[in-house]
Amino acid sequence: MWSFLHRLSSPPTFYRWSGVITPIFAVIAAALLLVGTVWGLAFTPTDYQQGDSFRIIYVHVPAAMLSLSVYMAMAFSAAIFLIWRIKLADVFAASFAPVGAAFTLLALVTGSIWGRPTWGTWWEWDARLTSELILLFLYLGVMALRSSLPERNQAARAAALLAIVGVVNVPIIHFSVEWWNSLHQGSTVSKLGRPAIDPSMATPLYLMIFGFMFFWLANAFSRARVEIVDREQNKRWVREALGDKAEMQRRAGEK
């Protein structure tokens, strides 16, 4: 079991299997996002209160949900790297940050666009909105910290530390609508029992959520692959993987 995990976490092994799985995930993501968008825009009824403006839900809710999931995954990878010094975990943490930042930005911008016609304001210094803005700053801070320190190991440790400290913000975002008198309504999706969204409107929302998930994995894997080649560029396996002819010949000669 442990040796299996150990092998799985070695960069060349990851490079090999991710090369197969990443394009598959990318295709799944593109298909889900395309179908979900067309379905959500054209084939769902209008909302009884908000009319057509509710359709922003299909981009806003997936982006907001995944902005939190990606952060948790990033902090988890950072913790694994700090404790066990597994290189691949740091590669993952570095690859998750830009995707998470993009999702957070989207959640904020689409939320603002949605808030104007429904609530009557682009922005309120409200608990939910402010804590999500802090999440964006955390992502940007983690990325800036990594690139501002010249020594890679030191940069990785500093970024990991900030990512872990920032985890306190995640439950604050999630429960802000219950703890404070927020303008933002409660969660539509995570409600158990009676779903808060009519079945005729729900399917494209689920498609979009899964589409964002596959987008995240495909995007983070392709980032991780580039990062690994960059870090291990002087190793033999990289030369072989990139099809360097001289290396192949040398290897053939050795045999």
Binding site: T46, G51, S53, R55, W114, P117
Partner: peptide, 10 residues
């Protein structure tokens, strides 16, 4: 339904 600017820009 009159929300073109908001929906399409999002």
């Amino acid at each position: 339904g009159g929300y073109a600017g908001y929906v399409w820009s999002a």
